[in-house]
Design a protein around this nucleic acid. Structure first.
Lengths: 156, 156
DNA sequence: TGCTTACTTGACGTTCACGTAAAGATACCA
DNA sequence: TGGTATCTTTACGTGAACGTCAAGTAAGCA
């Protein structure tokens, strides 16, 4: 049923390219605590990322771009989420069912919170769209009025 | 039919308060060309704004906040729109019908463009919302699975 | 007419979100 | 076992979008 996520690991350059940001951005986000400082390293010192890490980064970027959240706001949102994403891939190997239940439970309110933010933004955009449509309608009305006057009405 | 917009004028401080920005922001926007440098002045030198100017400013702020447009992007979007908003309030007194028709015609594509941008953003947000919902669903599924195991299953 | 408040134009300062360069260590590949 | 591409940290630089003085002028009011 569940597809085993092929558990390769990626170095920062590859991650950057895949996600569409620079390595600087990734390091900066780590510096801010947006990506667990826990990102594994090679025996040397090179950072190593999992598929889960990449997913998480993409998520952050999306929240940033679509909702215009500042990195500080992202941090708030993410702080509690830390554990979740970090543990997501090792979910399969995680110890007990009690542990699993805990993780699942903890993850929910965070996604809910994100969904709330998205919904709120959708609401405001919807209002904006309505206003713009209304303006188009109003313009068309004036247009028709003028056309009518110029065709049937008095010419000066 | 049309309500005569009460044609008071406002000074920068009052505008700032009403719109919810600082005077600095308003001057900065003018500096960038976002607000016609034409903003009337008193015989002295104090800037004077009309209701139309305020509406326009609010619109800019909304595009900035809801779509995350940079001021430069706003400028592009607005450049052609300049005439429209500037002339909007004096529409009633504008010279000929030919002139009015011209204004109405010029206004349309700009509003259309804004609407396009809003729609695009709505689209992306919608996709995001769907993904988040899907995640919630998936979490609930796991939750149920775990609950089932813990109740009916083997205890260790 | 004077007083207080609000505005004017500079001009320098600040925060955020990275960019960029330097100097060295590490990883991979022939 | 080199050589080269990729990574490491450190640190200063940068553009956008304003904030914040400072010194002077204009407006509204007793």
């Amino acid at each position: 049923m569940s597809v085993q996520t092929q558990d390769r690991s990626y170095r920062i350059g590859e991650v950057a390219e895949r996600v569409g940001v620079t390595t600087r951005t990734i390091r900066y986000y780590e510096e801010l605590g947006l990506l667990g400082t826990a990102a594994a390293r090679t025996k040397g010192a090179h950072r190593l990322y999992t598929d889960a890490d990449i997913t998480r980064l993409e998520e952050l970027i999306r929240l940033r771009d679509l909702l215009g959240l500042s990195l500080e706001e992202l941090l708030e949102l993410a702080e509690a989420e830390e554990a979740r994403a970090a543990l997501r891939d090792q979910f399969a190997e995680s110890a007990s069912d009690r542990e699993r239940a805990r993780i699942v439970k903890a993850a929910r309110p965070l996604i809910e919170r994100q969904l709330e933010l998205v919904r709120a933004r959708q609401q405001r955009l919807s209002e904006f769209a309505d206003e713009l449509s209304e303006r188009l309608r109003s313009l068309d009305e004036r247009q028709a009025e003028l056309d009518w006057k110029r065709e049937g009405g008095s010419r000066r």
